[in-house]
Amino acid sequence: MPDYKLNINGESHTINVEETTPMLWVLRDHLQFVGTKFGCGIAQCGACTIHIEGVAVRSCQLPVSAVGEQKITTIEGLSEKGDHPVQKAWIEHDVPQCGYCQAGQIMSAASLLNSNPNPTDEDIDEAMNGNICRCGTYTRIKAAIKTAASN
């Protein structure tokens, strides 16, 4: 099995795994970055969303061999002190119910705001449509994204 040198949250990590191993399991099983969640394994629910160079990607369908030297950001590295505007807005609106999907929701929202700092309702719907929340916190998520955008 080959070695992979990965840049995760600004730090270098070397791991030895089989090349098809999805980043989701590299993060969760091998590096204990468990904030990135397993939901469906087929890129349909968004719970495993991470950033590759600031762009939201479903880590369950991203083989470790495809990452190369690109910068990976997980929920643990989104901000140093948990004070990214999206995280703060999530607390302000008390978004989570069970909370399981929220790391993925936050990563999708942060990626949206990276590329579009003032999204319309339609932009939000479009960017967030791949993230399922079984508890039904969608209206709060939208409100929190608007709050984050205004900050």
Partner: peptide
């Protein structure tokens, strides 16, 4: 648990 949830701490 809000802060732990939004920062991805192991909870589940």
């Amino acid at each position: 648990d809000g802060e732990k949830i939004v920062t991805g701490k192991p909870l589940f």
